[in-house]
């Protein structure tokens, strides 16, 4: 194409480079300024490779499982024996708890307690592709707008917060997890009801922690307190468990406290996730409307 008919470019591709650089800079500017302009093109290209990614992902999981089978059989047997014991133990515990639960239900009815934990409607999805650059913690799932996904839907797994949908195509969605460097979640600490901000930090990559900041200086927060998404958050639904706080210390300016957070979700081995199909509606006051 460009080799055959145009000797001009072949002799000096400098002008073409300038033109393309200019176009790229325009592209950066426009996509930064008006995010949605190029959405259709982006969706079209990404949507085209999604079915292939899906196929390969299935194959990859198969191959992975195949090799996992060769894992130490002895180890599995030992583990099995241990698990059997635990099962017996847990069974007896369940019986005890069932009795407690019965009492609890009765009391709850008596007290007419409001639901403490709100159950959100969810849809399951498989992870089909992952960013491997080392810089981002984003991944692609195999459900898109056709299955009712939309931008800003919250994603959970293992009863904990995974992240939020940032891009949706017809048959795929891109999820940014809370451990991503750009992630920012308004949260609250359960026992003390302190507000805080949970943000990803790439520098804590190897520790398995993410950051908690902006905790009030007067807070009596202690290690292993649970951190939930806050009602104040504009994008995240309230009362989803994020993780456990630890290593609390005073910020260097002495005006607030900070700490580390261990997420409940195992981000290393994330294969299936649940997408909450409710989107948080931010309250719009009359002033905001104007």
């Amino acid at each position: 194409m460009r080799r055959g008919n145009s000797q001009k470019y072949e002799s000096d591709p400098k002008y073409m480079l300038m033109l393309c650089s200019f176009l790229c800079i325009c592209l950066i500017f426009f996509s930064y300024k008006f995010g949605n302009v190029f959405r259709p093109i982006q969706s079209a290209v990404h949507g085209l490779i999604t079915p292939m990614q899906k196929g390969i992902s299935v194959l990859g999981t198969g191959v992975n499982d195949f090799f996992a089978r060769f894992d130490d059989v002895e180890k599995l047997q030992k583990e099995n024996a241990e698990l059997q014991e635990t099962v017996l133990d847990l069974k007896s515990q369940i019986d005890l708890l069932k009795a407690d639960l019965y009492d609890y239900d009765r009391y709850k009815q008596l007290l007419e307690l409001a639901e403490t934990y709100v159950e959100y409607p969810t849809v399951g999805a498989n992870v089909i592709a992952k960013d491997t650059s080392g810089y981002y913690a984003t991944f692609t799932i195999d459900k898109g707008s056709r299955q009712g996904m939309a931008v800003d839907m919250n994603v959970i797994a293992d009863n904990g917060l995974v992240g939020i949908i940032t891009e949706v195509g017809k048959n795929y969605s891109v999820v940014r997890s809370i451990i991503d460097d750009k992630s920012y979640v308004s949260a609250s600490i359960q026992k003390t009801s302190d507000n805080c901000v949970v943000s990803g930090n790439l520098e804590l990559l190897d520790t398995g922690f993410i950051e908690v900041r902006d905790i009030s200086v007067n807070s009596e927060v202690k290690n292993n307190h649970k951190v939930y998404t806050s009602v104040l958050s504009t994008k995240y639904l309230p009362n989803i468990l994020i993780g456990y706080i630890s290593n609390i210390q005073l910020e260097s300016d002495g005006l607030s406290k900070k700490g580390y957070l261990t997420p409940v979700v195992d981000f290393e081995h994330l294969n299936t996730v649940l997408v909450i199909t409710t989107i948080k509606e931010s309250p719009v006051t009359e002033e905001d409307g104007e």
Partner: peptide
């Protein structure tokens, strides 16, 4: 050569941009 490298880089970069979900073009 330069021309082929440039076009290949451009397409590869656009593919990365499209699948990444961030600002396009970088």
């Amino acid at each position: 050569g330069r021309s082929a490298g440039m076009w290949t880089g451009l397409v590869c970069g656009l593919m990365l941009d499209f699948t990444n979900g961030g600002v396009l073009g970088a």
